[in-house]
């Protein structure tokens, strides 16, 4: 009984310096990771005219948001796009994920290959490819649907999200045997009913997590949005990007802070959903770290 304890004692006293070094390094890196975020949050309470120079504490920049319709509209466009894009990606991704898990075959390799291709293509390539494509569909082929700002944004934002939702739903269902569905079929449930009453509830944690992650991804998408958005429906990151050229004011920090809070709420919900479905910290890290 006392031998391992004594050993541990010895080990601890001998290893102390390296453990301390790990602690110090870990904390330093975390400080590094939070530094610019903290700066932005603090700057949003700056009453000065410019983001960089601190003039004093106040809520002026948040009040200015209310007075500036341009930023308000941009935030609204982002939220609207986020919901529609997340919905589209969740429907398409869930169906694809269920098909991959429950109807395996050679086609799954091809489909996984396509998903991999979508997820590793640099965003800038997607962006510059979608711009002429939307022009082609909307103007050359006369499908005016593709001239609509929201439609364009939703399409651009859904691409990566579809791969995320597909992976999540597939991983969740592959981990669970198909016995329940077989039992349901044996009890004379129609395929549609089995799908609705058994498969979908089994996949639900992944579907919800996928929806929230897609919403967040869409909310934050800057590169594709900068290329496909049309004037009149500018999402907030594109507004911030354009403000970069005209000088950064504390309102930019204020809107960033608000969007950060929104993102954190969505992420907190994702973690909650996964926790309740029985995932460990490492599982959650894998899910939310992009595979």
């Amino acid at each position: 009984m006392s031998a391992p304890a004594a050993q541990r004692q010895v080990r601890r006293s001998r290893k102390a310096w390296s453990d301390v070094a790990f602690d110090v390094w870990g904390v330093l890196v975390l400080v590094f990771l939070f530094a610019p975020i903290a700066v932005i949050i603090v700057s949003s309470f700056n009453v000065g005219r410019l983001l960089v120079s601190w003039d004093g504490f106040g809520f002026d920049s948040f009040l200015a948001l209310l007075a500036k319709p341009a930023i308000r509209d941009a935030v609204w466009i982002s939220v609207e796009t986020g919901f529609v894009a997340a919905f589209a990606a969740t429907v398409l991704g869930t169906l694809a994920g269920i098909a991959m898990a429950r109807h395996p075959g050679k086609w799954v390799w091809w489909f996984m290959g396509l998903l991999l291709l979508v997820s590793v293509t640099p965003e800038i390539v997607d962006a510059v490819a979608l711009l002429p494509w939307m022009v082609f569909l909307g103007q050359d082929l006369g499908m005016s649907l593709f001239n609509d700002g929201i439609v364009r944004l939703v399409i651009g934002h859904s691409l990566f999200s579809i791969t995320v939702v597909s992976y999540l739903v597939r991983a969740r269902l592959v981990g669970q045997e198909a016995q329940l569905e077989e039992a349901s079929a044996d009890l004379y449930a129609t395929p549609t009913r089995t799908f609705r009453k058994v498969t979908l509830p089994l996949a639900m944690p992944a579907v919800l997590a996928g929806f929230l992650l897609s919403f967040t991804l869409s909310l934050d998408n800057t590169v594709i949005a900068a290329f496909v958005s049309v004037s009149g429906s500018t999402p907030w990151p594109v507004y911030v990007l354009s403000a970069l050229r005209s000088g950064l004011r504390p309102e930019i920090a204020a809107v960033s802070t608000i969007m950060l809070v929104l993102t954190l709420i969505a992420l907190g919900l994702v973690a909650l959903v996964l926790r309740r479905a029985g995932d460990s910290a490492a599982d959650i890290a894998r899910t939310m770290g992009g595979g």
Partner: peptide, 25 residues
Amino acid sequence: GLLVALVMVPFWTNFLVRTLGWQVI
């Protein structure tokens, strides 16, 4: 769990905003 969350927050913070933070610093 807490440490994972602490790495996750910067990861999910808007890319552009994080970079603007460095511009200010």
